[in-house]
């Protein structure tokens, strides 16, 4: 199974009547078991790209080849839970086939056991984010899409959730697309990093990380980051010359 993304352009009309180019040609593929990371500055059109990939936005040029019948698990930037349904119902409504055992396991990993019957309005943002993660994983997805799932959480919690995502991703073959502006998240979780430019968005660089995810310790992470820093500086130097 693979996901092929080939967007040749996306424009939108502003209220004033002008047209804005949001996406320049963007092309990449993602294989099963791979974690692709889209990194770029805020407002660079990452979310627009995701909406196109997910089939929520059909007004673009190009094509998206998703495996037919692929189940999608998604964590939106905001948790997007149903405020009128309990935590457990929220997960079960999105994933009607989830078994009780699997649900308990997920709630245990994400430390949500005590909140099963709570309504989302009673949860902190961190907890709501975890419910959104539980929902995405409960679907048993073929494609997992994470849109800044760890933004605006404190470092300790973000670190723990990151480990949980890594565990869950490793537990089954799934193609994962992570959108983030945090280099930390990217080097911890990613197999391939796609660096994006400001609007109109295009892929500036594609960087594979060869060290397997579970063997990346502090030292390896630092080394990858140093490599990336060198690379981006090189890019900048190149641009300065030209």
């Amino acid at each position: 199974m693979r996901l092929e993304v080939e967007i040749t352009g996306k424009t939108f009309k502003s209220a004033a009547g002008g047209t804005h180019e949001v996406l320049a040609p963007v092309k990449f593929t993602l294989e099963s078991g791979e974690v692709g990371v889209l990194i770029g500055p805020s407002g660079c059109g990452k979310s627009t790209m995701l909406r196109i990939i997910l089939g929520l936005d059909h007004e673009f040029q190009g094509r998206i080849a998703r495996p037919p019948q692929a189940r999608i698990g998604m964590v939106f930037q905001e948790p997007r839970l149903l405020p009128w349904r309990s935590v457990e119902q929220n997960v079960r409504l999105a994933a009607p086939d989830v078994t009780d055992a699997r649900l308990s396991e997920l709630f245990k990993i994400l430390e949500l056991e005590a909140h099963r019957s709570h309504f989302p309005g009673e949860l902190s943002l961190g907890l709501a984010r975890r419910v959104a993660l539980a929902r995405a994983f409960a679907v048993d997805p073929d494609i997992l899409v994470l849109d800044e799932p760890l933004a605006s959480l404190d470092d300790a919690l973000a670190g723990r959730l990151r480990d949980e995502i890594a565990t869950l991703v490793a537990s089954r073959p799934v193609m994962t697309l992570l959108v983030t502006h945090s280099l930390d998240d990217a080097v911890h979780l990613g197999d391939r990093l796609f660096f994006l430019s400001p609007r109109p968005t295009r892929i500036v660089a594609e960087v594979p990380i060869d060290i397997p995810r579970d063997t990346r310790g502090e030292a390896e992470i630092a080394a990858i980051k140093a490599g990336l820093a060198q690379r981006t500086q090189g890019d900048r130097a190149e641009r300065d010359i030209s």
């Binding site: 929520l56 999608i72 998604m74 939106f76 997007r80 999105a94």
Partner: peptide, 9 residues
């Protein structure tokens, strides 16, 4: 945004 959620899932 909830419609989108329902459609993605």
């Amino acid at each position: 945004s909830l419609d989108e959620m329902a459609s993605v899932f």
